[in-house]
Design a binder for these strands. Structure first.
Lengths: 197, 197, 197, 197
DNA sequence: CATGAATGAGGCTTCATTCAT
DNA sequence: GATGAATGAAGCCTCATTCAT
């Protein structure tokens, strides 16, 4: 329905797949166009038929992945009724996705922050939308009285996203296994109930 | 008192200063040895008299900054008595330092995660010590009954560090100003008291 | 007929030619990639599209020259019938080739010995084949009774090759002219008849 | 008696010794002044107090070694009476020295040929003297009727030196052990008696 | 739709060498 | 007699990118 997958030429698809694969193992700046092409069974030149740039390729791939990610989250949220339940779901779903989809998490956690250009990219909009979704739920929670009225919604969002991202770091960087459900529940518990005895 | 700065040759000092300065504006991989040298008023070759590598330069500079950072935090912590007060202080001090010392925060928040090599570097040990300090305080808090007994200390640490780091991101990347004290208080409030109404 | 020159891209050919030319005047380590490229009318980068290394370039060029060299020798040998006549031919042909083909002789006489890496290169195999050819002829000579039965074939080979190589040194290094036929005949006479009165 | 060893300053001696040692393992161009200095327990600058050049250092070291080498040979020769016996001795002694004194052989067999500059160096004179010694003995042999009258003495010398050097190559490059006496006897036999049946 | 030859800018690093102290 | 800080030139190599076919 996005109108993209329809008639994409084989070369384009191969390139994106190749790049996605490489991003699983290495970081952006250490992946060369030569590798991308070779890995895709395509010539280097072809990359520039479909992508303005190496960066453009990154953004387009990221875009595709993120779209999928956000779609999934939106669907799951509808299953929850209370705001807190929704946020719980987001925390859980985000952890799941981050860990399952290494490409996405690596880009969001590691790569993308390095490049100011990213923040002007289309891909960044998706991140923004994700963040806005969270913000809205928080605000609804405050409005509905579920969340304390004096809570700064922006700050809460930061704590939530920060917790999610940091919780994934060890896994993403060192490959340490992580019990997703326990972690999600724990984060949620800390943030909603506080840790004070 | 660290016994390091004493007899360091001028060139070495200039190089480190130059690099520190450049890191304020650009990210590691887009800083060239040529720039470092020019900016230091030194020849490129001299860099390799004092540093094995461009990376080695990064680590040594980071090391110096982090040492200072951790030193300050340790001193301030002693002023607090309760564990929660100590954690409050750490949150505040970390925010302050991160924002004041752009070099440090950029390296920790952005650069360093990209390089697996970093985790074998001496500089990483410092980060570990910082993390351990936080963990200890949490454990003391649990032992003393200040913090809920069923709290997972590792997870709490993740939430705290994640919150701190994420709270700084906007400032670090976009230069958005941040009210440090309010932010610190807010994070603390969320984490210790919870946001549930 | 070797099936190599057919579809070699122009750049590759130019680079090899340029390098061959430069080797005529200078020694390997004092030839720079910049010179090679300039002399070839090509950019430096292109070298690394076709050759892994500067060394790789050397080996591939050497390989091509040596192949030709050995081919010629083999053909000429068939014209001789006795073993001694064959060795005479080899001595003559080797001298001729060495002096005509400065590149080859310089590499074999001077450069190549410096680099242990050479002995693992494909080019070294060719040298081995050349040496083996000589050894076989000697052994045939011994078997057929032309050469004294108590001759150590390996040592004789050493003396032959040593004589050839040393005889060329003056020419190769100082450009002293050399009467090839007389020299060949002289070497042959010394080795086969001995110099004892 | 050469007037050198007398009051050589310690630094000079250390540098030469260090360099000699390094030449045992590596080749000239891959030994750096930094290594020489470090290995000598001296600063790089000091090298240039005593030697014009890195090359100059090479030549002076070579000179010392060669002088010793030639001295030994001269003494041994006097023990022989006939010219052929003398040449036999030279072949044997040369093989011995080459193999025992890796530095010397490596320089003569491998390094030195690469550099035209060498042939203007003082060290080259020594090689010349060595060569001239051999030539003289050959000429005496011809005059005395020991060696065939129609022998070209220059060519014979080439064959002799070529045989010696080539015989050592395998040992020097690959470390293949060599039975010196047998080899010397074999070379002598081939050259003086010929190999024709 | 795709190839593949070629570019060019610049990156990091090495090293012999000098000179003030 | 020796140090050690600093230089500068150049070397090899990498890589994103373009363009004619």
């Amino acid at each position: 329905m996005t109108g993209k997958e329809k008639s994409d030429p084989p070369g384009r698809i191969k390139i994106m797949a190749s790049f996605s694969g490489l991003m699983q193992e290495k970081d952006f700046s250490s992946i060369t166009t030569a590798q991308i092409a070779k890995n895709a069974g395509v010539t280097e030149g072809l990359i520039y038929k479909y992508f303005k740039d190496k960066k453009d390729l990154l953004y387009q791939v990221l875009d595709a992945h993120f779209q999928e990610f956000h779609e999934k989250i939106k669907i799951r949220i509808t299953q929850a009724t209370s705001s807190i339940a929704k946020l719980d779901l987001i925390i859980l779903a985000s952890l799941e996705e981050y860990l399952e989809n290494r490409l996405l998490s690596k880009i969001i956690l590691l790569e993308v922050r390095n490049s100011r250009a990213f923040f002007n990219s289309g891909a960044y909009k998706m991140v923004t939308i994700y963040a806005r979704t969270i913000l809205k739920i928080i605000q609804e929670g405050i409005a509905s009285g579920e969340i304390a009225a004096d809570t700064n919604p922006y700050l809460l969002r930061k704590v939530i996203i920060g917790a999610i991202e940091h919780a994934c770091l060890g896994e993403v960087i060192f490959g340490k296994p992580l019990d997703i459900e326990k972690t999600a529940a724990g984060i949620s518990d800390i943030i909603f109930n506080g840790v004070k005895a």
